[in-house]
Design a protein around this nucleic acid. Sequence first.
RNA 1: GCCCAAGUGGCGGAAUGGUAGACGCAGGGGAUUCAAAAUCCCCCGCCUUCACGGGCGUGAGAGUUCGAAUCUCUCCUUGGGCACCA
Length: 854
Amino acid sequence: MSHYRAADIEAKWQEAWDAAQVFRAERSGDRPKYYVLEMFPYPSGRIHMGHVRNYTMGDMIARHKLATGHNVLHPMGWDAFGMPAENAAMASGGHPRDWTYGNIADMRGQMKPLGLSIDWSREFATCDPEYYGQQQALFLDFLEKGLVYRRNAVVNWDPVDMTVLANEQVIDGKGWRSGAEVERRELTQWFFHISDFAGELLDALDGLENWPAKVRLMQENWIGKSRGLQFAFERTDGGEIEVYTTRPDTLMGASFVGISPDHPLARELARTRPDVAAFRAQCAKGGTTEEALEKAEKLGFDTGLRVRHPLDPNWELPVWIANFILMDYGTGAIFGCPAHDQRDLDFCRKYDLPVIDTFVALDDPSPVSDTAFVPPKDRQVCWIDHFTGIETATGQEAIDATIDFAEAHGWGKGVTKYRLRDWGLSRQRYWGCPIPVVHCDACGVVPERKENLPILLPYDEDGTPIDFAIPGNPLDRHPSWRDCACPACGKPARRETDTMDTFVDSSWYFARFTAPRATTPTDLDAAGYWMNVDQYIGGIEHAILHLLYSRFFARAMHICGHLPQTAIEPFDALFTQGMVTHAIYVTRDGSGRPVYHFPEDVEVHESGARLGATGEEVQIVPSAKMSKSKKNVVDPTTIIAQYGADTARWFVLSDSPPERDVEWTAAGAEAAHKHLSRVYRLVCEIAGSSDAGTPEADETLLREMHKTVHEVSGGVESFGFNAAIARLYAFTNTLAKSPAGAAAKRQAATALVQLMAPMTPHLSEELWALLGHEGLVATAPWPVADTAMLASDTITLPVQVNGKRRAEISVPRDMGQAEVEKAALANDAVIRSLDGAQPRKVIVVPGRIVNVVV
RNA sequence: GCCCAAGUGGCGGAAUGGUAGACGCAGGGGAUUCAAAAUCCCCCGCCUUCACGGGCGUGAGAGUUCGAAUCUCUCCUUGGGCACCA
């Protein structure tokens, strides 16, 4: 008998799988198809433990489905466009293309030793011209169907570097390189019409039963359906201001009308009035994120204009410009009701506007001081209505009554609005998919001809080097690429130099995997066969944007004939897995600044941690997301070299529930490896044994085996991976201690090896062969539990007295309730605990528990 | 600021209305060994008790229930997202 040597075993079986083409996905009629997909990685340079966890989970599903008779598609690719490649080129020279493909080669090399059941023949990167060319074709189809359009929108503008910044490049309102205060500036940009699909994307969430409820809720809130009243305030100087409100019931408490700094009226005023222009400029400071806007100090400017209240022409309200009103939502104008909205109240107190608090109140009305009273929509409020005649109603009834009233009198109408905004896809960067249009002075915006696709990113073919050293989009500075002939009239024209948001790349890759070499974006036959993705797995950080964009894209692709109707919800089931974390090791330098250390440089003892080199004491910050800057990273390649892939796979699955974060610990990895070694030894021993056992011992072991098969199968199917592994630990203990005979033990060991195969595929193949089985365990049929072997004849019931456990009784499984009650009351411990008191009630939950209530 | 989630021994966690702490790590004791590594066996929430037992206990506080880690409300802490990070 030899030792468990992962290195020898793993390479051998990976070659065997390759040779047998086990994971090659081919369409075939006789087995049901199963498409399992993990969110594809960004090629940052090295794979990390988060990737290992993500792909191991997907691999488990894929291997389990293969063993249960499915035709499995399990592909892998690269989300390869994006800022880091351009930043790398800016920081250290080189070209984003070389950097990216180099990283892909490195990461593929790191991933293959994991032994994933991937069909590598379908691999692609989104920066492959074959992929982004098809994406350009999709764009043109979308354009033709009116799914894409152009309009102005704001971006973060760095006034020193003269460039557009991504949100993550804005630190505390300042540009990350220049340090200059960022401004909001308008550019003409391309948008997808996703808001046209808001209602449908919302309604269809109900059908996504195999998505986590929290993800559906987050999407629901993001889409943000609301019903409210839209109406116009008449300006005293002529004209009107259209507003939208979800709380029309508070109209009698209005103090002012507010408009966005980007509202057409504010723009118009700014043209002639320097004070308005100055205020608008002040509002344009800072970044574009919703968080920045919400947290910014609330600023207001009195335009001097006035409007009439719709219910009382003598009641005039001032018109203010306020920085917290978003032009993108509603009509870009509101009425402010300080008594019933906290933000409006703060605003009115700040600018000394009146607070009218006599309209809606609780049964015990008290004047509004610093806290607004928001009438609850679902609760009855005391209602003093000036025009509908309703005196008491729930908040919702009051809202509906007000809308009805406005419609009946013809000054407003009930409308449904969504918070969801159209998806801006233009990026002023090089390393992305070029938008295939041309700007012509004569013809305007002209789509490229499809036969000219792909519009390739320039490398340096014509001697005009791409310069990444200066900020801004290199495509703008590349005349030989930018200048072209108009596809319509042939006169000199300019290419669009904006590229697409990388979310576009990841919004249809799952469809492309079904026919990755097709000369059209998809092959309808292949997509019809393989779609939908049966199980999608990825991080919770993608719960909203990526998943919503993909749902939109599937619908848009269907409209253009690239996906069947059945694929408009592309992901049947979704699982969101947690991160891999690791302790951070910190020391302080002379001035108290933190200095981080790699785990391999630190010796951890019971009493604390010290630097291996100097013995300096190290502070341990537990459980933080692995990041290069904090040096709390563990390289999967190192772990595989030390213990093998099966150990890494076993550990990331075993230590935490998959939806939660898992902390990587050296001790945990060590323990996982010890356990696999133990299984190896145990199975070797069983394979060589010829001991006789008793029929009783054999039956006990086989009963345990069937229970284990049942529970582990259930765990694998329901993402209870850590509980499944705990069950496998327990069964290994049972098997090791069992006095059963060699034949029964071999049967039990075979089941153990098969149940472990999706998690530790190499070890399982080795032991499968060692136990004398033919073929590969990867393709062997999954074991099935014999239900007759799952139940035993007697059961143990806990007995509670007043909800506290006092005794256990052992009774036949099928004993009647009355007899169970009698047995419980006859128990010594129960009698002692009752201490002579008469039971008032005895609750018997069959097969579960007995509770005696005194 | 807004939306979503999580919180259980020294640690990771199990139990989704029915025996809280399965399984693993760390720790303690023992066997084996010249010794060690490796391996194997036993113990292991806290307080109390010689022991049997008893009390307390799932972030904090309230509530529903015969019974709550699990359901409801309020609060605290941590994590994810907030539309140009991927």
